[in-house]
Design a protein around this nucleic acid. Structure first.
Length: 804
DNA sequence: AGCACGCCGACT
DNA sequence: GTCGGCGTGCTC
């Protein structure tokens, strides 16, 4: 009986968003199982694609002739039953392809890579052979296109002298090392040592080491580095049959050179104990309860996480914890590795793809039982999950802004449901959505209202920058802030300065005619980058020289406006020359490990001031920081985004938490042009509850989440009319099927209507209850296939983070 | 995505 | 008449 595999193929179109049937050849019959990656022929020609086996059955409904699976790409399944099911369901609620979901779940190394080659299969004229193939037998597709050889090659193909070959490249390479094992017993080795001449000291060292191995093995590198035994000696020893070599798979350990000091659980205070109890109960009883742990900065949330995880490990279960990428600091890693040692796998963007793959394998083999990582770690192949923790749950980075547009929180709750275990959402400033759910008792609210060190939250002083301007201070630093910075430097204490760059960029403008340099491809102005001395477009990546003369009026009065971290650093240097500044932003942290290096330099007090963007607001904990400054608190407030106030409040609260973590008292300076804005005033008072009340009122008035669910539909096309027409059509087709209280905003052009020469139109749907809406939209997507093949793009984003 | 099929214009 | 343009539809 021939078995049949149902395969999701790597061809992202609606028609292929269902399994295709393939025959399983006898040679694979034993090993094949659902969740494995396979290489399958697809379409006419010789094209081969990667696919995922989702099921193995005995019969097929397909009317045509089945093709056979060409190759297995894995020895064991890379997706288990749970993840296969999750991918299928996620594709539905994120309006994306199943294949895209599966690819997202896996480390980059297991994602499909294709190799397209042109092979010589018959005699071709010698001159052509050398001209085209340079005497080789095959040519990569890329090279052929680059050298413009395709027309000639296609002619040869017609004559069947060459053929196209496709293959799926399996990049999943493990790192191996060469190991030595002794082939002689202790006594035999002893004899060899006695028999050695005095002039063979290295061999004697080797033999002594082999004796001390005690049936263990040692790597050739260790033997060389630690004992100075060279490869030549080892080779000779192999010839003498003293030892033999074998290959051992190893992990690329990103923390190879680090020691983690073992930490012990702290004794919890009463409030922590009170918060921990219900969680522990849920962990022990395997209840799928969602907790919202609301604790002020420094209230010891991490210790609660650690003790919860310890409990799940005790029960033989594993734990999954998400943190925002930028909070994945060495400090964070330390506290987890310190408590749980080798049982911890850490996944973050700073790892190489090889390192990520190895961490993934450690989890897959259940060697790591605790996973700490950013958004995509929610798909870690952990079995038997005992708890899922999402720290800083309000963070927008948990929502992926490309397909599949999933929210890690939704996936967490899905997986917790599957495993029947609790979820902990932790934050000092919960998202309104989560807080509201806790209010409605959908989540269980747990609160940690005080800091562990019993210190008061730092005093926040709000500086009205309008007054500064009036008194003639045109700089970005208020007089008060300048004084405080000098004071801290004198006291050898440290400072963090945050530049809130959201919605802000530096641009150049002509003072005479007001001309602002636009991007040729997008409807947006170019941003000045001092490091590369160019103008860049943040949307399409276009780059050009900084103009000296105004292209519009030929004037010479081109000036820089706006504020970047680079400019602030220079300004700071002018005002306070003695300040030693470390700047942290995308430009200085791009390189691998740069982030960590800068932070440890700051930790070693090599600088007085840490100046940066959002990335310095999260999680860092330096006892010597006593002053935190926000240079421009309100740049986000002007944005047409209903979450602007919430983000500002969260950011300010977070920054306040950076100051005065230890013995020294902290102080916070917030500079703003909107000192009376409620998000700034309430952040100053550390009053989350009042902010929640106020903001809920406004959300209610504006019919925004959490009172309404939202879906954002975007169409785009290189021709504006096509995009607008389709959007119009979509709105007309769904409106009649919606309830009267459902609100449609659109169609409207997007705020940046043209990006990369494509035109964007959007519609927002706000609804309370639309049981058929998802189905309708699914339908809409599948009906639009033809247009989508002709350059139209439709994106559907449920609960988007940004509406512009 | 990539390939074949099929239907129209310009060429040996 | 044939070569080759790309619009259309299918891939187990």
């Amino acid at each position: 009986m021939v078995s049949i595999a149902k395969v999701i193929v790597d061809v992202p179109t609606m028609q292929t968003n269902k399994p295709y049937d393939y025959l399983i050849l006898a040679e694979f019959d034993e090993q094949i199982m659902p969740g494995m990656r396979v290489e399958v022929p697809f379409g006419q020609g010789a094209r081969k694609v990667q696919g995922f086996v989702v099921e193995i059955t005995q019969a097929s409904n397909f009317k045509g002739e089945l093709k056979a699976i060409a190759n297995l790409m894995d020895l064991t399944a890379v997706l288990d039953e749970e993840l296969l099911l999750l991918g299928r369901e996620m594709a539905r609620w994120t309006f994306s392809f199943q294949i895209t979901c599966y690819q997202t779940m896996l480390p980059a190394m297991l994602r499909a890579k294709y190799e397209k080659k042109i092979k010589v299969i018959d005699e071709i004229p010698e001159n052509l052979f050398f001209e085209l193939f340079k005497g080789r037998n095959e040519l990569t597709w890329d090279e052929a296109t680059e050298r413009g050889l395709m027309p000639q090659l296609l002619k040869l193909k017609k004559k069947e002298l060459v053929e196209l070959s496709y293959s799926v490249k399996n990049q999943a390479k493990t790192k191996k090392r060469r190991m030595i094992q002794s082939d002689l017993s202790f006594e035999q080795l002893e004899e060899e040592i006695i028999g050695l001449g005095k002039r063979a000291p290295k061999q004697s060292v080797l033999l002594r080491q082999l004796q001390s191995l005690n049936n263990e093995s040692i790597s050739t590198t260790d033997m060389n580095k630690k004992y100075g035994v060279s490869a030549a000696i080892l080779r000779e020893a192999e010839n003498k049959k003293w030892l033999s070599f074998f290959e051992e798979e190893m992990y690329r350990d990103p923390f190879k050179h680090k020691e983690f000091k073992k930490t012990e659980p702290f004794v919890l205070n009463d409030t922590q104990e009170k918060a921990l109890q219900p969680i522990m109960k849920a962990v022990k009883q395997h209840e799928k309860e969602v907790f919202l742990l609301k604790g002020v900065t420094g209230s010891g949330k991490t210790e609660i996480y650690l003790q919860t995880i310890a409990e799940t490990l005790k029960n033989g279960q594993s734990a999954l914890m998400l943190v925002p990428e930028i909070a994945l600091t060495p400090q964070m890693v330390h506290s987890f590795k310190g408590r749980f040692g080798g049982a911890v796998a850490v996944l973050h963007s700073g790892l190489s793809i090889g390192e990520k793959y190895d961490e993934w394998r450690k989890i897959e083999r259940q060697e790591a039982k605790v996973v700490v990582g950013a958004r995509s770690s929610i798909f870690a192949p952990v079995k038997n999950i005992g708890v899922i923790i999402i720290d800083e749950e309000h963070e927008g980075t948990y929502k992926q802004d490309e397909n599949p547009r999933y929210h890690a929180k939704d996936v967490a709750i899905w997986r917790a449901d599957y495993h029947s275990c609790p979820v902990i959402l932790g934050s000092a400033t919960p998202s309104l959505e989560s807080r509201a759910r806790a209010y409605k008792k959908v989540y269980t609210l747990l609160e940690l209202p005080e800091r562990v060190n019993k210190k008061d939250l730092p005093v926040v002083e709000v500086i009205d920058m309008r007054e500064e301007v009036k008194t003639g201070n045109r700089s970005n630093f208020s007089i008060v802030l300048q004084e405080k910075i000098r004071d801290r430097i004198a006291k050898k204490e440290q400072i963090v300065l945050l530049l809130n760059r959201r919605g802000y960029s530096s641009f150049v403008m002509c003072r005479d005619c007001g001309f602002v340099l636009p991007c040729p491809n997008c409807d947006i102005s170019l941003t000045l980058h001092m490091d590369t001395k160019t103008m860049k477009c943040h949307y399409c990546g276009h780059e050009e020289a900084i103009p000296r003369i105004c292209p519009s009026c030929n004037g010479h009065k081109i000036r820089y406006y706006g504020t970047g971290t680079q400019k602030i650093e220079e300004e700071l240097h002018d005002i306070i020359p003695e300040a030693r500044v470390i700047r942290m932003d995308v430009d200085t942290t791009r390189k691998k490990g740069a982030h960590e290096k800068l932070l440890s330099a700051f930790g070693n007090k090599e600088a007085d001031i840490l100046l940066g963007t959002q990335m310095i607001a999260k999680g860092l904990d330096f006892p010597n920081i006593t002053l935190a400054g926000v240079l421009n608190a309100d740049t986000g407030l002007g944005l047409p985004d209903f979450r602007a106030s919430e983000r500002t409040f969260q950011l300010l609260t977070q920054v306040s938490g950076r100051a005065g973590r230890a013995e020294l008292k902290g102080e916070v300076i917030v500079q703003t042009f909107n000192p009376e804005h409620y998000s700034i005033q309430l952040a100053q008072k550390h009053d989350y509850d009042a902010f929640y009340q106020k903001e809920m009122l406004l959300r209610h008035r504006g019919n925004y989440p959490p009172f309404f669910f939202t879906i954002l539909i975007t169409t785009s096309h290189t021709e504006e009319l096509q995009a607008s027409k389709k959007m119009q059509e979509i709105v007309e087709s769904i409106r009649p099927n919606l309830r009267p209280e459902t609100i449609l905003l659109g169609p409207t052009p997007k705020a940046v209507a043209r990006v990369n020469n494509r035109y964007y139109y959007q519609t927002i749907i706000k609804y309370k209850h639309e049981p058929t809406l998802f189905k309708q939209l699914q339908e809409l997507l599948s009906q639009s296939q033809k247009e989508m093949a002709k350059g139209l793009q439709i994106a559907i984003d449920s609960e988007p983070m940004h509406f512009i």
